[in-house]
Simulated assay, not measured.
Amino acid sequence: MEKQLPYSMAVLGLLLALGMSGAAFILGVQAKKAVSAQQSVSVKGLAEKAVQADNAEWTATVSITAPDFAQALAKLRQERPGLDAFLVEHGLDKTSWQESGEQVTPHMVDVPLPNGGTRSEQQGFDASQSLVVVTKELAKVTTANKDILSVQATGKPFTATAPSYLVSNLEEIKMSLIGAATENARNRAKEFVKHDGVKVGVMRSASQGAFYILPPGGTSDGDDYGGTYDKTTINKTAKVVVTIVYNIEQ
């Protein structure tokens, strides 16, 4: 028994040494994989291009006030043909109009009280009707919007909102810009790591940030995830921001 003891101890020691070596190797490989998995770079990619509105929406309204309901409605119907004629004269065909219903509502005013303050009091009725012009003839809408001021100066009860100049293929524009912004992001990532002896690997994650439609020369200083849509100009700039995380390979 005394001769077998040293031999048994030697075998046990060898097995322990092998076990520890194997465990160290496994842990080393796992640690290397963990470090490799943590190596990444996050970049923002930008892309923009000039776009042009191809649709316009413009609302013109007849609004009058009269002492009673019947007079208000009659006066509205008397003035409405003048607005129709104005639009036709500017080449805006009736097929482009969307007509709202006639509206007659109490005309309320704030009347001062002797001891201060005010009270709301009805003084006649307001009548109105709107025509929304939807057209691809942007120049005609622009001209009509300018000329309606001259008509108002003659005493006609016409008002108009500023035209909205819209881009119909926004999704197509967005998709093309996302591709360009993704390429821009990879180029930025390469620039970041080119001095470190590593290379940019596969994309780990990606998210689209803001999609901007800006006036010419406009800035996108707002929240990256908010975006803006300028409707006041015909010529615009479309811009997309993406955030992409790439693996870094040794």
Score class of each variant (00 low, 15 high):
residue 88 V to D: 05
residue 232 T to Q: 09
residue 56 A to G: 06
residue 212 Y to G: 05
residue 31 A to Q: 14
residue 7 Y to D: 13
residue 194 K to P: 00
residue 27 L to G: 15
residue 97 W to H: 02
residue 37 A to I: 03
residue 142 T to D: 09
residue 66 A to I: 06
residue 218 G to Y: 05
residue 42 S to A: 08
residue 40 S to N: 14
residue 73 L to N: 08
residue 73 L to Y: 09
residue 98 Q to I: 13
residue 57 E to S: 14
residue 71 Q to K: 11
residue 148 I to V: 11
residue 10 A to W: 07
residue 231 K to R: 11
residue 174 K to D: 12
residue 128 S to Y: 06
residue 38 Q to R: 15
residue 241 V to N: 05
residue 140 K to T: 00
residue 114 P to N: 00
residue 105 T to S: 05
residue 47 A to E: 10
residue 136 K to M: 13
residue 193 V to D: 03
residue 52 Q to D: 02
residue 21 S to F: 15
residue 97 W to R: 01
residue 86 F to G: 07
residue 24 A to L: 14
residue 204 R to W: 04
residue 23 A to D: 11
residue 190 K to P: 01
residue 189 A to V: 07
residue 249 E to N: 09
residue 11 V to F: 04
residue 100 S to Y: 05
residue 45 G to M: 07
residue 224 D to I: 06
residue 106 P to F: 00
residue 85 A to R: 09
residue 104 V to F: 03
residue 1 M to A: 15
residue 222 G to Q: 04
residue 114 P to H: 01
residue 98 Q to Y: 09
residue 209 G to E: 12
residue 141 V to T: 04
residue 186 R to Q: 05
residue 218 G to Q: 04
residue 122 Q to D: 01
residue 132 V to T: 14
residue 200 V to I: 12
residue 228 T to S: 13
residue 171 E to W: 10
residue 244 I to G: 10
residue 107 H to N: 06
residue 115 N to L: 11
residue 98 Q to H: 04
residue 36 S to R: 15
residue 214 L to M: 07
residue 208 Q to V: 15
residue 66 A to Q: 14
residue 157 P to Y: 02
residue 13 G to A: 12
residue 68 D to R: 00
residue 141 V to E: 04
residue 78 Q to G: 03
residue 204 R to V: 01
residue 145 N to S: 13
residue 147 D to Q: 08
residue 171 E to H: 09
residue 123 Q to E: 10
residue 213 I to C: 00
residue 225 Y to W: 06
residue 156 K to S: 07
residue 26 I to M: 15
residue 235 N to D: 12
residue 9 M to Y: 14
residue 145 N to T: 00
residue 207 S to T: 06
residue 30 Q to F: 06
residue 35 V to Q: 15
residue 233 T to F: 04
residue 53 A to N: 01
residue 150 S to P: 11
residue 66 A to D: 08
residue 139 A to G: 08
residue 194 K to V: 10
residue 49 K to W: 03
residue 222 G to I: 06
residue 117 G to A: 11
residue 95 T to L: 08
residue 233 T to S: 10
residue 72 A to C: 00
